[in-house]
């Protein structure tokens, strides 16, 4: 290889490397897969450090008795191999087995009530009861914290954010399914966007 050719090629390689973060961002390789109804298991650290802390050992997936937790594959970029729960498919039933098994503390050891996987949000334009078409109280009936996390106001479901653990059982049970696959009650992973307090 001639010197000029070598310099050209190494220059091109350098450009590629410097452009890599751009490509990665544009392809969503650094974007968190946690969105509406796509939740981390209970006790998860914020997304900011999740990819760094999780060692992708898959033990939470194996230990989950309901097969709620799945592994993301390489299409998730740097989040490859991290656990995720698709709330509308199989929600988390809060057995709390995964938090005891996580070897790196990515899932912190917390109790059922302390779990904050997200918060349920009722879409009042889709919910049958809120719309006024029929009286449906499925979400209220299935909620493990009914009465505190979800209450009925004139038979219409209202979420109490202070107590909702974001398990997604209501989302799973909701009879309304929109074209995009979302339900009339969805889990928004608002706690995953928290920032880490460095000590």
């Amino acid at each position: 290889m001639k010197r000029r050719e070598f310099l050209k090629k190494s220059g091109a390689a350098l450009c590629m490397i410097t452009a890599m973060p751009e490509i990665a961002f544009s392809k969503g390789l650094l974007k968190s897969p946690v969105t509406t109804n796509r939740l981390r298991p209970p006790g998860a650290v914020p997304e900011e450090i999740f990819a760094g802390k999780c060692i992708r050992c898959g033990r939470c997936v194996e230990v989950c008795p309901y097969r709620s937790i799945r592994l993301l594959d390489i299409r998730a970029g740097i989040f490859t191999g991290t656990p995720i729960i698709a709330a509308e498919e199989v929600p988390c039933y809060l057995c709390m087995k995964c938090v005891l098994i996580c070897p790196t503390g990515t899932l912190r050891r917390i109790s059922q009530e302390q779990t904050r996987m997200g918060m349920a949000v009722v879409n009042r334009h889709r919910c049958y009861t809120w719309e006024g078409s029929i009286i449906c109280r499925t979400c209220f009936d299935v909620c493990p914290y009914k009465g505190s996390a979800i209450i009925l106001d004139e038979l219409r479901p209202i979420i109490k954010g202070d107590h909702c653990v974001g398990c997604g059982i209501c989302t799973h049970a909701c009879p309304v399914t929109a074209e995009d696959g979302s339900k009339a009650i969805n889990i928004e992973p608002i706690y995953s966007r928290e920032t880490v307090q460095w000590k």
Binding site: V45, G58, E62, K97
Partner: peptide, 30 residues
């Protein structure tokens, strides 16, 4: 669920093993 995981982290009952490099990376990054 006596045995979970593989050679990144292996749990046999209450005996846990974490691969040194993976553990080190996790500590360094987080």
């Amino acid at each position: 669920d006596l045995i979970q995981g593989w050679y990144q982290s292996l749990g046999i009952g209450n005996f846990w093993f974490v691969s040194p490099l993976e553990g080190l990376e996790s500590i360094l990054v987080a």
